[in-house]
Write a protein that binds this DNA or RNA. Structure first.
Length: 200
DNA sequence: CTCACGATTAGA
DNA sequence: CTAATCGTGAGA
């Protein structure tokens, strides 16, 4: 078996726009280390949120609230929020300061720490551990304590393999029908035929 | 202070 | 298909 070579994504990588980053981090590995264990997942599904011009985005129109103010900082930090009173949604703030774009990580493929994930999720089926934005954060035990943390940290970071070989599917974003102008933009990206992409 | 609702999920 | 569940944001 060939050894997988991974290169850590730099802070400057996250200064690009959301659309490019959402596509480019597909197939990348998300690593999350604690004292007890290391969890790793491959990013298989993302969405881009374009910020001020995007009426599906939390920062549409330049709105600033206590919850979303992290979006207005320099790219490369984590934006987390609670949805439906239960599930943590994990985003990476991208672009430059005062350009509040974000990349939403909707699904990953579990690579390492699968037993821990099964225990936390209370399910045995591997395909159901991480195939949705609220599911994978539950597997990784990610919550509001990660808000504003650098995605280039020692204990949580993204790295890219040298070679990637898959096709990317583009679709409309999920669950943004409340948006009128932007709801049909093709800003959701996922790895074609990957088993861990969220619901049909 | 009140209150409607969500970048979702589990379960019938 | 519907209910769950609670922090958040808008408005009184």
């Amino acid at each position: 078996m060939k050894k997988l070579k991974l290169k850590k994504r730099s802070k400057a990588f996250f200064y690009q726009g959301a659309k490019d980053i959402a596509k480019n981090i597909l197939g990348d590995y998300l690593t999350f280390k604690t004292k007890k264990q290391t969890l790793i997942g491959k990013i298989v599904e993302t969405e881009a949120y374009l910020g001020i011009s995007d009426d599906a985005s939390h920062s549409f129109g330049g709105k600033i609230t206590p919850r979303n103010k992290t979006l207005y900082g320099q790219g490369g930090v984590i934006y987390i929020y609670l949805i439906y009173g239960k599930y943590w949604c994990f985003n990476i703030v991208v672009s430059k300061k005062n350009d509040p774009q974000a990349v939403f990580i909707r699904a990953i493929e579990p690579i390492r720490g699968i037993e821990v994930m099964k225990k936390r999720r209370g399910v045995e089926k591997e395909e159901k551990l991480t195939n949705g934005p609220g599911r994978w954060t539950q597997s990784f035990l990610i919550d509001k304590s990660f808000l504003g943390k650098e995605i280039t940290s020692k204990d949580i970071f993204i790295s890219s393999p040298e070679d990637k070989d898959f096709n990317i599917v583009k679709t409309k974003r999920v669950g943004v029908d409340y948006a009128t102008k932007s709801k049909n933009l093709l800003l959701r990206f996922y790895i074609k035929n990957n088993l861990f992409v969220s619901k049909k």
